[in-house]
Nucleic acid binder design. Structure first.
Lengths: 233, 233
DNA sequence: GATATCTATGAGCTTTAACTCACATTCTCT
DNA sequence: AGAGAATGTGAGTTAAAGCTCATAGATATC
């Protein structure tokens, strides 16, 4: 029985020439994946499209899976970096603003190359366990947990673990669907709004029963999502 | 370049003997898929495990993809039937009860054979366009849209199309994740509760600002999810 | 410019899974 | 019983993707 192939790069390029080769290989991989789909992508075809010999390809990547793994890793790292940046950017903003900004940023990022996004994500289970994707996921969860903890006074859910699981799952799936499977008759804006609405209502504390004279530490029940103002702290 | 393989069955069994053969083939497909994963599943191996000759297999299915497509189709049909049954069962129940019941039923169904569930769903994109999966998805959406329309007086979202897209995407992803990727330290119950809570808060109309003397047509702001009572109609 | 290392080449070997087909067996029906 | 249809068989063909290796060229370093 064929063993599961390795997915780690074989060796790193050291000179400028070889770095160019590796870049060409990865670019060609993306191109062929999008053009032909995963099944009909082969290392021979990738090498041909990249304009390098099949031998060169195998100098750096031991298998087709390794090629895809490298692309996925790069892709996830970009997303993680984006998310982290955005999170710092909106860290002080009111929760509704932050939620919408993060969702919107994710959708935008995934919309840049929707076909590549789609193919790569479809291959994550195949390649995932063998590269750093699991760590990335963990990282996303940690980021979100940190945020929720920081904001715990303004947030309803008490079961943080469950909330993080639910929100990460939902966020990943919905932004991916919006970027790659959106029916034409619904706009991206509408969908992002609707998603932000759902997440906000999930996070938002219940409106207190008593009259609201006092200065409490909660989000307004219907914060205007577009308005950017500092929180009462 | 290799063409995309057909995924429709070649011919239907007519006698009891051949029906048994086809059953054995599908059972073996499921078993090998779970044991070895998609990539290392081959038609030869499936035939061997099924105890039939490779020739017999090709009498009924023209490719490996066709085998998986058949399994996926059967699987989706079961889910669809379950969902439809449950929906009728809870059609008259209050929305919170219905939401929780549907989510719970889906998670239960997907938890029965989590590994098979996982492998099959991972192959949907590969096989999906060529079998009836898209129709199934459409069917789910129609079911939900019907329900939301029926309940529109008790429900907040006005953009039905967006709501249906969001809820179907979320429901599919989250129930799948709960059944196949749940971290051990969180219970299924907790996760289903949390999900139901999110969906409910998304669907629930805003509590009116005025005092609630009158008999209005909305859900109670915090309906106890476990209690089953007829709606005011 | 000599030497060692890094890099590139591509014909071709190996492996494996997909798939066929000529023939054998079993079933159905009169 | 017997004819024709349905079903089952598996060795063998085909196709193609994965991958190696002997060789050659490029670059760095002294």
């Amino acid at each position: 029985m064929r063993a599961r192939p390795r997915t780690t790069p074989r060796k790193a390029p050291r000179q400028a020439r070889s770095r160019a080769t590796v870049d060409a290989i990865l670019a060609a991989t993306a191109q062929v994946l999008v053009r032909d789909g995963y099944d009909r992508t082969s290392t021979n075809k990738v090498a041909e499209v990249a304009g390098v010999s099949i031998g060169s390809l195998y100098q750096y990547y031991p298998s087709k899976e390794a090629l895809v793994a490298a692309l996925i890793e790069r892709h996830m790292q970009r997303l993680a970096a984006l998310l982290e940046t955005k999170m710092i950017e909106v860290g002080e903003a009111p929760v509704p603003v932050a939620v919408r900004a993060l969702l919107s940023a994710l959708v935008d990022a995934k919309t840049l190359e929707p076909k590549l996004q789609k193919v790569l994500m479809e291959q994550v289970p195949r390649v995932g366990r063998l590269c750093k994707v699991a760590q990335m996921d963990k990282h996303f969860e940690d980021l979100l947990r940190g945020y929720l903890q920081m904001r715990h006074a303004q947030i309803r859910p008490t079961n943080l673990d469950a909330a993080v699981f639910l929100l990460v799952t939902t966020g990943a799936a919905v932004t991916h669907a919006i970027a790659t499977d959106r029916p034409e008759h619904i706009s991206v804006e509408e969908l992002v709004d609707e998603t932000a609405e759902m997440v906000m209502r999930y996070l938002r504390p219940d409106a207190p029963a008593h009259d609201r004279d006092e200065d409490d530490d909660e989000l307004p029940a219907r914060a205007p999502v577009t308005e950017l103002h500092p929180l009462p702290s």
